[in-house]
Design a protein around this nucleic acid. Structure first.
Length: 764
DNA sequence: TAGTTTTAAGTTTTT
DNA sequence: CTTAAAACTA
């Protein structure tokens, strides 16, 4: 085989090759950062199909993020088109797929909707009367953890999470309520399939027959429940191959168990281990710096990463006065590199918490550095978006109490908590259908409440009418595959901004969504609010509708749409994201699996990174996070640490991170004012000067005629733009329309919003 | 009871 | 400083 191997195998080094050719016993691939593990997995998939003649449909490969799943699918398909038929999914998406067709074995209707964290908290709060929000959230978190560890309410080991009987009771109540509603949470997507496979040997056998090869990426991040799922899926003839790196385990807080990878050989007897220790990504000093920190961890499998790229520029550590200077530092680095031809897209700015991004955003907006913020797109958490999604969710599952309570009285139509409780109670006595229950007791309600309920039910009917009958029953939806969203639509259909225009329906499912939102009064409610507050809510709803338009207008399409939103909120549908020349702003956690030519790790201070007063295992996890971040860099790596930082609005003195003290000083160039204990090598390498902010530099002209068509403008949130329209709308003064350089168009009541603006001259 | 104002609280990391 | 929850008023 080795002699005349095809080109796609030629590219592999001996270890990678061994991993691809390996068969028989379980295989554990210990793959260091940048050692080409994705290449190994994708090549192995293609190899099995091409050379071993394996049916692609019998291959299951699971990952933890949608991004990784997509990338893997694409790269495997590049080698062999037939790989498209292999099942490449995230654990959770696989669980959802499984439950859609086998859920009935656990009394779960296939038309279920997936609850996100907010939904579970909302449900839990109906179960925990008079409990402070924070406690409810904490309980929700503990329940999620329990499911990660595959613990039921009556499991003795539940004591490890919370030993109080009260918690047991709440968890049990929650499960009961959720069962009645017929929906699932994230943990259920893993836990329920395991239970079904265990209780139904015939079904388990079918799946073991189908999936002959199972591969798991990022195995160090698997939790106990996921491990149990793997065990159930593996029969005597299943080939299991897991890939991971114990040094990159960073999801302990979510139930990930490093033990899973450390003990894999014991759990699966006969396991062979292959190590990938050649790093093709980073120059040697970067690897040395990264290793020097993670070496302080105990309890590792231990491995040495060797750089195939050799020497290069040593990492730079910058001590800076505060976070504003930190943003300036990043900006100037990027600007200067740009002058010598380095594109923006080569840069990534990394931080520990999402909140840290806005300082950089602000600075980059001012100085016209294009960027994108990865993750934390709070789009789906917005009130109006959640409202619209709740309407859709209630349409497919009328037992959904959370969705019902959220939208039945929105906008206010006289249906208060008392009425809601009556309807919920009524539903409890029957099949749980809230719409039916509401209809049953309308005669007992006050006139106001009754008309409110009727408006709501009427809107639902109209929404339902907008769905095609072809897949009108849930039974048919079962058969449908909720795999991929239908053909990607590259065109960003118009309908931007326009706060005075009504919500417009497009094609497919968007007709249903728009009907619901309009009829239920959600659209009108936000429409009136938008102009006053300068909000973008109608625009957001329109965006959501546009997203829905690629799905068919049927129950099946609806379920696909909702599932896709719950499981993949990245909104990163940018087909070729390297084509856009922008800087990447991203949390350390989100960088896993990515690489950038130049990386700036920011906020390397005690309390921020490592977070608060982490000790022991948790400190080790922070250290691994440091390792993950540093090993993303290919060519250049920068660290920044501030002496002061605004936290909670107060400026606090900061201490340099422990990790900076652990860093090998031999491969570090320190600039700026190093605190005690640090040697500053190149003294005062031109620290960037703070720039005079444009905002505020020119006073506004007051009174009427402040705004002229074509004026250039700067807005704190949206950056630069130009006035494209002025409208006098009576008592509230003029409304101006602004088209921002980002392409977004928005209306503002200038009277209320003027403080957000600075004119920067119409000749600019 | 609905909508507003005041006060308090809190910020990891994510499928 | 920004958001969410309690308190208050029309």
């Amino acid at each position: 085989m080795a002699q005349n191997s095809p080109p796609y195998l030629e590219a592999l080094n001996p270890e990678q090759r061994a991993a691809v050719f390996h068969s028989g016993s379980p295989l554990l691939i210990l793959a260091g950062a940048g050692s080409g593990k994705t290449r190994v997995i994708t090549t192995k998939i293609a190899y099995l199909i091409r050379e071993e003649g394996l049916d692609p449909r019998s291959i299951l490969a699971v990952t933890f993020t949608n991004k990784a799943a997509r990338e893997m699918a694409e790269r495997a398909r590049q080698i062999d088109e037939r790989a498209a038929d292999a099942m490449l999914r995230t654990f959770h998406s696989f669980g959802a797929w499984f439950l859609r067709r086998n859920g009935t074995l656990a009394n779960l209707d296939s038309g279920f909707v997936i609850y996100d964290d907010d939904d579970t908290v909302a449900l839990l709060s109906t179960l925990m009367d008079d409990t402070p929000r924070a406690e409810v959230k904490q309980t929700a978190h503990k329940i999620a953890r329990a499911k990660d560890y595959f613990l039921t309410p009556d499991d003795p080991e539940l004591d490890l999470i919370d030993h109080r009987k009260k918690f047991r009771k709440t968890y049990a109540d929650y499960e009961e309520r959720m069962a009645k509603i017929g929906n699932v949470d994230f943990g259920d997507l893993i836990k329920k399939p395991v239970e079904i496979l265990r209780n139904n040997p015939g079904t388990a056998e079918r799946f073991r027959e189908r999936f002959r090869v199972i591969m798991v990426d990022e195995y160090q991040d698997a939790n106990i429940a996921q491990f149990e799922l793997l065990k159930e899926l593996c029969g005597p003839h299943t080939y299991l191959c897991v890939v991971g790196d114990d040094d990159q385990s960073i999801y302990r807080f979510r139930g990930a168990e490093v033990k899973n990878i450390l003990e894999f050989p014991n759990r699966f007897p006969g396991t062979e281990i292959i190590r990938l220790e050649r790093n093709y990504r980073s120059i040697e000093p970067i690897l040395r710096a990264a290793a020097s920190v993670v070496d302080h961890n105990a309890g590792r499998l231990g491995k040495k990463l060797l750089s195939e790229r050799g020497a290069g520029k040593i990492p730079v550590l910058a001590f800076l006065p505060d976070q504003d200077e930190e943003a300036v530092f990043c900006r100037v680095l990027i600007e200067n590199a740009r002058k010598s031809g380095v594109p923006y897209s080569h840069w990534a700015v990394l931080y520990r918490t999402n909140a840290q991004s806005q300082g950089f955003e602000h600075e980059f907006l001012h100085h016209r550095i294009p960027y994108r913020v990865v993750g934390s797109l709070k789009f789906y958490e917005r009130e109006e978006v959640k409202d619209a999604l709740a309407l859709l969710a209630f349409l497919v599952n009328q037992r959904d109490e959370v969705a019902f309570r959220r939208v039945v009285n929105k906008p206010s139509r006289g249906v208060g908590p008392a009425t809601m409780d009556r309807i919920v109670t009524e539903a409890m006595f029957s099949d749980g259908n809230l719409a039916a229950a509401a209809r049953r007791i309308t005669s007992e309600l006050s006139a106001k409440a009754r008309s409110g309920v009727e408006t709501f039910l009427g809107a639902l009917e109209k929404g339902r009418a907008a769905l095609n009958a072809d897949a009108a029953t849930v039974e048919t939806a079962t058969a449908a595959d909720t795999t991929e969203p239908p053909a990607k639509k590259t065109k960003k259909s118009a309908a931007r901004g326009g706060s005075q225009e009504a919500l417009r329906a497009g094609e497919g499912l968007s007709v249903c969504l728009v009907t619901l939102v309009n009829e239920a009064g959600i659209a009108g409610y936000h429409l009136s609010h938008d102009e006053i507050a300068g909000n973008q809510r109608i625009g957001n709803l329109q965006e959501l509708a546009n997203g829905a338009s690629i799905y068919p207008a049927s129950v099946t399409g609806l379920l696909q749409f909702l599932e896709h939103i719950e499981l993949d909120r990245s909104l990163e549908q940018d087909t070729d994201d390297t084509a856009v020349d922008v800087v990447t702003l991203i949390t350390l956690h989100n960088t896993k699996g990515l690489e950038f030519r130049r990386v700036i790790m920011t906020g390397i201070e005690q309390g921020v990174f490592p977070w608060e007063d982490k000790k022991g295992d948790e400190l080790e996890e922070e250290r691994r996070l440091f390792y993950v971040g540093a090993t993303r860099a290919m060519d250049e790596l920068y660290f920044s640490s501030c002496a002061m930082r605004r936290l909670f609005g107060r400026t606090m003195p900061m201490e340099p991170s422990l990790f900076l003290r652990e860093l090998d000083k031999e491969c570090l160039q320190v600039i700026g004012d190093a605190p005690y204990g640090f040697v500053s090598t190149a003294a005062g390498k031109s620290r960037p000067k703070p720039s005079a902010g444009i905002s505020g530099s020119k006073p506004q002209v007051s009174s009427d005629g402040r705004w002229h068509l074509g004026d250039r403008i700067y807005h704190d949130d949206h950056g630069y733009g130009a006035i494209t329209g002025i409208r006098e709308s009576g008592e509230d003064g003029p409304v101006i329309r602004v088209r921002f350089d980002t392409g977004r168009e928005q209306h503002f009541l200038s009277l209320h919003q003027s403080s957000h603006y600075t004119r920067i001259g119409s000749d600019d």
